[in-house]
C-alpha cells in the first residue's frame, strides 16, 4: 500500500479528533453567529439613535478588521493583562463576534428590501415593536438571507483552519503536524483540501434544499442572490 495512505491510517485517530474539533467549532459558531447576528440586527433597528449607531459601528469594525487580528489579540494580547483564555474559548468568542457581524449585515440588507408598509400595518394593528420584529420582520429577513447565511456557514467551515494559528487542535492543525513528520506536504495538503471540499459539498446540498423550502412566496423564481 502507498506509504502516504498508510500514514493517514496510522494517524487516523488524530485526524478524526481534529475533524471533530473543526466540526464542533463550526457548529458552535454557526449557531452563536446566527443568534448574535439576530441580536445585532435587532439593536440596529432600535428606537434609540445612539444604540443604533453604536451597533452599526460595532458591525463595521468587526467586518472591517481581520479575524486573525482579533484571535491573536485575545490569545496572545490578553495574557500579559492577566486574562488567560483557552484556544477553544478564544476561537469561539472570536468567531462568534465575527460571524455575528456578517450575519447582522446580511439581515440588515434583507430588511432594506422588505416592503415597509407591512410594518406600518402591524403598528396600526396594535402590535408592539418586539412582536413586529419577531413575527413580521425576522421571519422575512431570515428567509431572504438564507443564501447569504448558508454561504457564511461554508465560510465558517473554511475559516476554522485559521484556528490552528492559536494552537487550536483542529483538522488542519493535525494535517499540518502529519506533513511535518512525513514531509509529504503536497499530498497532505491536497488530502486536507479534498476533505474540506467534501464537507462544503454536503453543506451546499443542504443549503439548496433549505433555500427552496423557505423561499418567500412570490420570490421563489429569483434563485440565488
Amino acid at each position: 500500500m502507498d506509504a502516504f495512505v498508510q500514514d493517514l491510517i496510522h494517524y487516523s485517530p488524530q485526524i478524526l479528533a481534529g475533524l471533530k474539533n473543526t466540526l464542533l467549532l463550526m457548529a458552535i459558531m454557526s449557531v452563536t453567529g446566527i443568534a448574535g447576528g439576530i441580536g445585532l440586527f435587532y439593536l440596529s433597528l432600535a428606537q434609540n439613535r445612539f444604540l443604533r449607531r453604536g451597533t452599526e459601528r460595532f458591525i463595521s469594525f468587526f467586518i472591517g478588521t481581520p479575524l486573525l487580528v482579533h484571535l491573536f489579540l485575545m490569545y496572545y494580547g490578553l495574557p500579559p493583562l492577566g486574562i488567560r483564555l483557552s484556544a477553544f474559548a478564544v476561537a469561539v468568542i472570536g468567531f462568534t463576534i465575527n460571524v455575528s457581524a456578517y450575519n447582522a449585515r446580511y439581515l440588515m440588507t434583507a430588511y432594506n428590501g422588505l416592503d415597509k408598509t407591512q410594518i406600518e400595518a402591524a403598528r396600526a394593528q396594535g402590535f408592539r415593536f418586539f412582536q413586529i420584529f419577531r413575527l413580521i420582520i425576522l421571519p422575512q429577513a431570515l428567509r431572504l438571507s438564507v443564501p447569504s447565511l448558508t454561504n457564511q456557514v461554508i465560510q465558517n467551515l473554511k475559516d476554522t483552519s485559521v484556528a490552528f494559528l492559536i494552537q487550536y487542535p483542529d483538522f488542519f492543525a493535525q494535517m499540518q503536524e502529519i506533513a511535518s513528520t512525513n514531509f509529504q506536504f503536497f499530498k497532505t495538503y491536497v488530502a486536507a483540501g479534498l476533505v474540506y471540499l467534501a464537507l462544503v459539498s454536503v453543506i451546499v446540498a443542504a443549503a439548496r434544499r433549505l433555500e427552496r423550502k423557505v423561499a418567500l412566496p412570490g420570490l421563489e423564481t429569483l434563485g440565488r442572490a
Partner: peptide
Amino acid sequence: HRLRQDIGFVFQHFALYTHLTVEENITL
C-alpha cells in the same frame, strides 16, 4: 397599543404580511 387595536386600518397598497397566507394574515 390598546387604542390602535380599536381602530382598523386599511392601506392603499394593502400592506399584507407577505410571508403569511390570507388566513394567517387575519389570525395573527
